[in-house]
């Protein structure tokens, strides 16, 4: 499976509930072997979109293609979906629940049993196998839910807020598991409110707001397109250079550093060179990239 191959293609999809349009004309591709960050504020239409991808609901318009075929119920067996709002049977043994979820994905019980043991072992939950849900802590339940998502070894993993309720150690653990899936050329769609995490894990992002796409693309592209060509400078001397309008559009002094907005088409290297030549003692010269958080706030705030 090459990276150029789209695992999932959402093509001009619209979903309405009565008068309310939850998703409007949404299109995007998700490629194999990459982590796709699906971002957006509450009520933007994320859950509705995910439900259409996993085949819980069907789009009113447009089409969804998975693994090069139009979405159909049998594809569900190749998707692992961990919903944001999720649960387990309260009074049932962990092993029985996992068996049931695996059976619903058409995994033969002998295979399922091996995988259940393997995953419980890996999650340090082996001794809880025959316990009931009510005996487990919330974090443990979370891990069991994750196991139920991957028991059928899905090619596409959709994780909606997978880290909520986990302690930092377990978050790192889950990130490890995710990178393992990624290295097996599987695809991960990952939805979160935590921009730092998204920035760390995602290769590609899609930001939607009010049922529509706002930005999409690889994280690098998005950030580059968002760069306002800002330089953070901390230096003694060289102030004269900041008046050069061919290089500096605007310089704002903060308490201990200067924020420089480069002039259009100006080369940061040229500015750095001139600063050194002017004899400035530079302790910091950094090209500032916007954080995903900034972009998020800028976009969502801007649309409002």
């Amino acid at each position: 499976m090459g990276n150029s191959e789209a695992t999932l293609r959402v093509d001009n999809v619209t979903k309405r509930f009565g008068d309310f349009t939850a998703v409007e004309g949404l299109s995007f591709d998700v490629r194999a072997g990459r982590v796709f960050g699906f971002l957006g504020p509450n009520g933007a239409g994320k859950t509705t979109t995910i439900r259409m991808i996993v085949g819980i609901t069907a789009p009113d318009e447009g089409k969804i293609e998975l693994f090069g075929e139009r979405m159909s119920p049998k594809m569900q067996d190749r998707i692992g979906y961990l919903p944001e709002e999720r649960g387990l049977y309260k009074k049932m043994k962990i092993v029985d629940q996992l068996r049931y979820f695996a059976a619903l994905k058409d995994v033969p019980q002998s295979v399922a049993d091996k995988r259940i043991d393997k995953w419980l072992e890996r999650m340090n939950l082996a001794e809880w196998k025959n316990k009931k849900t009510t005996d487990l802590s919330k974090g443990m339940q979370q891990k069991i839910q994750f196991i139920s998502t991957v028991l059928h070894d899905p090619d596409l993993l959709i994780l909606d807020e997978p880290f909520s309720g986990l302690d930092p150690v377990n978050v790192e653990f889950m990130i490890d598991v995710m990178s393992e899936f990624k290295s097996q050329d599987k695809t991960i769609i990952f939805s979160t409110h935590l921009m730092e995490t998204a920035e760390r894990l995602c290769n590609d992002i899609l930001l939607i707001n009010k049922s529509k796409k706002v930005i999409s693309g690889s994280l690098r592209e998005v950030k580059a397109s968002y760069g306002k060509n800002l330089i953070a400078l901390r230096a003694v001397g060289g102030e004269a250079m900041l008046g050069d309008r061919s290089l500096v559009a605007k310089a704002t002094e903060h308490s201990d550093e200067i924020e420089i907005e480069l002039a259009e088409n100006a080369d940061p290297q040229a500015l750095l060179k001139k600063l050194i030549e002017s004899g400035a003692n530079i302790s910091k010269f950094e090209k500032v990239e916007p954080s995903l958080n900034d972009i998020f706030i800028d976009q969502i705030g801007g649309v409002k």
């Binding site: 996993v54 569900q76 649960g87 309260k90």
Partner: peptide, 17 residues
């Protein structure tokens, strides 16, 4: 009601009709 209350329904619906 249990499956609805515990939100298991969402997982079930993503696995079978």
């Amino acid at each position: 009601v249990e499956e609805k209350e515990t939100r298991i329904a969402e997982i079930l619906f993503s696995s079978a009709r």
